[in-house]
Design a protein around this nucleic acid. Sequence first.
DNA 1: TAGATTGTTAATCGATTAACAATC
DNA 2: TAGATTGTTAATCGATTAACAATC
Lengths: 227, 227
Amino acid sequence: MGNSNPGSDQKSSSTGETKRKLSSAIVRRLPRYLLYLQRLKSCGVKWISSQEIANFLELTPSTVRQDLSVLKITGFAKRGYEVDRLERSLYNVMGTESASEIAIIGAGHLGTAFAAQEEFAKRGLHIFSLYDQNPNIIGQYVSSVEIKDIKDLPEDIKKHNIQLGVIAVPPTAAQEVCDLMVEAGIKGILNLALIHISTPDHVEVKDARLVIALQELVYRVTTKESD
Amino acid sequence: MGNSNPGSDQKSSSTGETKRKLSSAIVRRLPRYLLYLQRLKSCGVKWISSQEIANFLELTPSTVRQDLSVLKITGFAKRGYEVDRLERSLYNVMGTESASEIAIIGAGHLGTAFAAQEEFAKRGLHIFSLYDQNPNIIGQYVSSVEIKDIKDLPEDIKKHNIQLGVIAVPPTAAQEVCDLMVEAGIKGILNLALIHISTPDHVEVKDARLVIALQELVYRVTTKESD
DNA sequence: TAGATTGTTAATCGATTAACAATC
DNA sequence: TAGATTGTTAATCGATTAACAATC
């Protein structure tokens, strides 16, 4: 019960694509590798060793090699890893190329800030639309993203195969918006609201709250007297 | 080398305050407990069991009891934990009461969204000021937070004992802003910029990037075919 | 009382690190 | 060649879970 059957050695059938499930520890590091590799690439660096990657990201070379080998990315003795190939592999593995459209619910400060981020394109992500219930702002644009009526959301999700939703509404409305999206067939939800939301097992939820991140930092800083 | 000497059984000297170092796994759960407890309290619930907390936050009762016992918070057999006391203990342990002022650097979409969040007060956090280099917006207010000239930042950090800084500037300026704050004596930095920043050991950094959180979610959703 | 729930010890599980033969 | 660096196995470390006596 609650056991998610690990250890099943699911190789990807027929395609050469790496698509086995990775531990969340690795998944959290992958975007950081990608970020660094993109930067190296833009600087014209051709080869990089696990040692150098580890130094930069404050990891051990061992961890880096373990991670990359799990991904089936191979390097060369004495030279390390080819930056260009590694960057492309990481980009592919992160799966953003095949990623669907994203809907952002709530066109307040946080929702519009999210919509205005320029980093999405670099990662192969695209925002379909912002949704709000305030008639005064419906129809406006935030950096080329239209604000639509939240009533249009369910139909848009179905029609345009939107798989990801971002909840940027006040806590009191979060679960309601969540249910609406689940009902319409959303696959994953990024929750920016400061409240726990429940979904059925087949819908992934990731919490990303700035206040909680800040609070973690506060804790670390205030308990630092010992060092 | 790089070994941070764990296992040192540092009891708090003289005061009864719990201030030993907790593992980051626990620190990440604490704000979630607090959030839930605050909600229970507002609903008038008096007692809560580890089982119920675990159900709600999708943990095991065992983990919950371990976490709370590490915090020296005690419950009662048969009744569980007293909501009011537990809430206050968590609030105290998170240390936000003694937290200093916060500076936000970069008054773009993300910085202003951060400044406009209403959740800070509930957590005992206060934003001192927003900083930017754009003369056209200096002097403006975002929900009662003033936008000041970034040139004032070092002096403000020193004079008003600002211990926490939030980096909400473009990646190209992030390290520069970071260095400026470190130089002025900042204690912790929340980094929203999509680039790795380096600090000396005595300055804590916590990364919080929405794009990376979203990318993690994309990965989980796109590799879900197996379930 | 009987049953529920804690607090804590021991067992398990998983992630990180060390070590080293293979290789370029 | 000698030295550097990989890929992978084994060892270590830490976090989670199970189990159960104590207790209300």
